[in-house]
């Protein structure tokens, strides 16, 4: 029998992809195993991250060497991550739909190409540049002008009133995240708007609807699954975003936001900012606890992505 060399080589290289995903999960789980055993499940919903007295002698608790007073609880990170991403998605969705309609149906084809560059290039800007922009432009603008104005205007709405803060915080992070994910949502949406059958549009137009009404009553309901799928996909991107959030979130520690202007921290940003101090822990438990955060973040994004791909697969996008 002839061995299909070429195809075997293809399969071997192609299997790098799933193997690397599996290895990621396995390495993280193995490395953080002591922390998982020590922290158990209340790790997720206690609100107490404390590396302990790093100058003391390690003590043994339940068979694990830790620094005296060390506690690991990440509820504030869970809240910060999920609330900022969901807020970003809620802000991004209407604008992305509007921009997708504008670029695919609203203007003539010859203008759509150059104008869509604005949106496409927005997706290409590195996240650390978004962070810099947020840090240098948005934070002063929001902190000095817009947040105080919002606090006085919306003083009757819960979560929108209270202290206006410094500009670093939940709403600024969500805003930057929203600008980052709009191009993703808009690009997929534009593609699927162009893929809907022209006959449907023509039927609507012949009933006397104008183009916006055709879009609202016929095309959008047809794209419901795509919308949900691409929304979840963007949510997954926002959950894992590191640099931009790190630079505008205010890096709160053990603090739950009381309104939308309050400082927060997210899991991804926390991992990036805390490894240096975790390395000071001679028992290594802090580094392992950070790795547990990475594992939690990885599992959340994998679940979110699987859900999104399922939706998009059902809607037969790509």
């Amino acid at each position: 029998m002839k061995i299909p060399v070429f195809r075997t080589a293809l399969v071997a290289t192609a299997s790098f992809l799933p193997i690397s995903l599996l290895l990621l999960i396995i390495f993280l789980a193995v490395y953080s195993w002591p922390a998982i055993q020590y922290n158990q499940f209340h790790f997720l919903w206690t609100n107490d991250w404390n590396l302990g007295n790093l100058y003391g002698n390690p003590v043994s608790v339940n068979g694990h060497q830790i620094m005296p007073g060390a506690k690991y609880g990440i509820w504030f990170l869970v809240v910060g991550t999920i609330v900022s991403s969901v807020l970003a998605m809620l802000m991004a969705m209407p604008i992305a739909i509007g921009a997708a309609y504008f670029l695919s149906e609203g203007i003539r084809k010859s203008w759509a190409g150059p104008l869509s560059l604005f949106v496409d290039l927005l997706a290409a800007i590195p996240s650390v540049v978004y962070g810099l922009w947020g840090y240098a432009l948005l934070v002063p603008l929001f902190g000095h002008t817009i947040f105080p104005f919002m606090v006085t205007t919306f003083s009757f709405i819960p979560f929108l009133n209270g202290a206006a803060g410094s500009g670093y915080g939940l709403l600024t992070s969500a805003f930057v995240l929203a600008v980052m994910i709009i191009p993703l949502i808009s690009a997929t949406l534009r593609e699927s708007i162009q893929m809907t059958e022209p006959a449907l549009k023509e039927a609507g137009l012949s009933l006397g609807l104008n183009r916006l009404e055709v879009f609202w009553h016929i095309i959008l309901p047809k794209l419901k699954t795509v919308l949900i799928g691409v929304g979840i996909l963007a949510l997954g991107r926002a959950l894992g975003e590191t640099m931009a959030v790190l630079m505008v979130s205010g890096n709160a520690l053990n603090y739950l936001p009381s309104n939308i202007y309050a400082p927060i921290s997210t899991m991804a940003a926390f991992i990036a900012s805390q490894l240096d101090s975790a390395l000071q822990d001679p028992t290594n438990m802090a580094v392992e606890a950070l790795s547990e955060i990475a594992l939690v973040l990885l599992l959340i994004t994998v679940v979110v992505n699987i859900a999104a791909r399922m939706m998009l697969w059902m809607a037969r996008v790509r």
Partner: peptide
Amino acid sequence: SDVLVGVPSIVLGYV
């Protein structure tokens, strides 16, 4: 591979 696209880059860095 689509799921791998969604893995946060900081997690890759940590691994």
